[in-house]
Nucleic acid binder design. Sequence first.
DNA 1: TGATTATTTCACATTTTCTTCACGATATTC
DNA 2: GAATATCGTGAAGAAAATGTGAAATAATCA
Lengths: 226, 226
Amino acid sequence: MKKSKILVVDDEQRMRKIINDFLTKSDYNVIEACDGEDALDKFFKNKDIDLIILDIMMPKLDGWGVCKEIRKESKVPIIMLTARSDEADELQGFKLGVDEYISKPFSPKILVARVEAILRRCKGISSDDVIECDGIVMNRLTHIVTIDGKEVDFSYKEFELLAYFLQNQGIALPRENILNNVWNYDYYGEDRTIDTHVKKIRAKLGNKGKYIKTIWGIGYKFETLD
Amino acid sequence: MKKSKILVVDDEQRMRKIINDFLTKSDYNVIEACDGEDALDKFFKNKDIDLIILDIMMPKLDGWGVCKEIRKESKVPIIMLTARSDEADELQGFKLGVDEYISKPFSPKILVARVEAILRRCKGISSDDVIECDGIVMNRLTHIVTIDGKEVDFSYKEFELLAYFLQNQGIALPRENILNNVWNYDYYGEDRTIDTHVKKIRAKLGNKGKYIKTIWGIGYKFETLD
DNA sequence: TGATTATTTCACATTTTCTTCACGATATTC
DNA sequence: GAATATCGTGAAGAAAATGTGAAATAATCA
């Protein structure tokens, strides 16, 4: 699952570092900008930014200005940082499309929680989190697998292996390739262990088990066609 | 705490009444719409609707159409009602931003449970000071937890951990995720300490302790269903 | 400070999952 | 069609993860 990319804009270097640290620890990809112009520059150069955390008070171009510019071209969620709660002209903010306010000082826990909530809300259940194929639905968030609407238990390895198959449909996957991608890099066991897992997955898939095809001398391939 | 407003859209009057009754009984504010166009009309006239329950099969404009229109302007959570489980094209649904499916016939308890879960999830850590789920009531202000009306002592960590579970119902939470969100950022201890807390919380929850499910190889998940 | 409580760590029991192995079945090669 | 290599399968035990109770450490409060 791809990490979400977050642009953090604040003129105080210390504040940027604090936010960066917490978001990085929560497994986000962080880009920093030190003022409004820098922010616009970085935002439009990195077309895949998922969320912006924006300080209001900044030299050159303030948070409102940045927000207005970005909203001309993008619906990316924006969190505004305000020094005092009364600084936030919330009405103006919501008209500009601000998604959330957080007032300084804030607890890192709340910041990360809001970020997560917004990303989840915006993506719905992001397409990265749900893999679907012919009635097999795998949800990474809930870790639930349903087959034709019926919930089926999958162990951790089984889940990961099936997900790998579904993400590489139609591609013949050599055993070594599978080991490298589904198992830890420091795994040095037999590759026949894959076969055992395949057997279990096939059984759990029922009549869809035949989608996992054996490629003789190579490995396996997931394909719904015949 | 303000009542949440829910828009119920179904062309069958009988079905609307059933849902309305249960939600009203659970202290929600319900608005009904009898078809897709009516739904859009009511939604945009009542700007403060918190959740939509939407039947797929409807005359004029079906559930998908309503969903698509609403998503152009709003991120309000949407629950889809499907006549049969296979009617739900879940992938299409998730792309359109459907938050949940419930297939008819459904039990009222499940409907209400899903509604509660979604509303809570969407609000993330909102300003709400009271978290509630199936008789478990947590009050952030007073730091009091009651289970089926009976007060139970929770230590600080236990409180925070349980709150985190309740705010992320249905989501498989890896231990690392839990540590990052419930413990301080500078905590570098064992993740097994989570297990000890889970044990204590489960004990205090009594027969509701089973809601905290173990996801082998990953972590825990709070879920009232099953 | 000393006592009390909360949190973390540890050791061991328990449970679940993963891996290996042996043997039969099946495909490929010559 | 026989020889050979590869795969399917079920069982066993090895390994890993979790449950549990108690002890050690840390934090809090009178």
